[in-house]
Amino acid sequence: MSKALLFAWVGLLLLLAGSVLITALVPGPAYIGLNIGFAVLMAALIFTVFMKLRSADGLLRLFAVGALMWLGFFLLFSLADFLTR
């Protein structure tokens, strides 16, 4: 169990290093997606391992996904306005 925590921590630091290196070494808007992807992976690691969502009951996972989905609604619909004006 604590092995999983340590692995997650190493993974987080590697992802962080990767993301910072992308920004520092290869600047360009093309890599924005990569930065955001790394952030999502880091968040997923914290959620599943540190916050035990992996072993939690389905309901808690539903709450977490639900809150994200609601944020998605907000982003999607308000962007729909700003981008088509």
Partner: peptide, 22 residues
């Protein structure tokens, strides 16, 4: 109920396409 909020903004300068969706 969470997907209709734009109908308060039809005359505020909301984009037409967003308006149609809302």
């Amino acid at each position: 109920g969470f997907l209709v909020w734009g109908h308060h903004m039809f005359t505020s300068g909301l984009s037409l396409y967003a308006g149609i969706v809302f």
